[in-house]
Amino acid sequence: MEITRTTTAMLDALHDPANAEIWDAFDRRYRSILIGFARNLGLNEQDSADIAQETLVRFVKEYREGRYDRERGRLGAWLVGIARFRILDHRRRKGGGAELIDEAIAAKLDDERHLTQIWENERRHAILQVAMRELRETSRTDPRTIEMFEMLMVHGLTPQSVAEHHGVTTHDVYLAKSRVAQGLRKIVDRIQAEYDDG
């Protein structure tokens, strides 16, 4: 399973520069959030990937220098702060110093609350992604239930078609969907708690 550590445990383990596994986990957890964050601020895919890379590198540097003080704020806020600056810097470099940062992006970057909101949305998005993967790969929900759910929600078939295909009632199809939702909720809550710890 990909995410099994709380943020505290992860941060503690990050003190060991040789612990490649933990750096991988950290990278997996935050890279996609950072990319989504930058994408949301209007950057293209390539630039967003660069921002994520630069932000993670910068965080590692600051963390090892002891700059990240958990009492002063959550990890997310710290990463947002770095990413914000990286985006400003990136745009500045890209413009060769002459071109001003795109106004719309600049306005968004000035709005701390908006940035936090984007970060939270992206974090939620990442949690849901991880949860869905876990649901499919490791959940104890029986395969037929998952299959009914997929047919209904992913492939957009009508409840009647799904019921017919599986030889059950539409009521059973809805209950299958509900069971999947409950399983997903549990996974999401657990992962959320792991992330919230930071």
Partner: peptide
């Protein structure tokens, strides 16, 4: 039901990306 649908919808959207 509404909350479950919203959760599933958001998760599937996140997954589809």
């Amino acid at each position: 039901i509404t909350e479950e649908n919203d959760l599933l919808g958001s998760a599937l959207f996140a997954e589809s990306n």
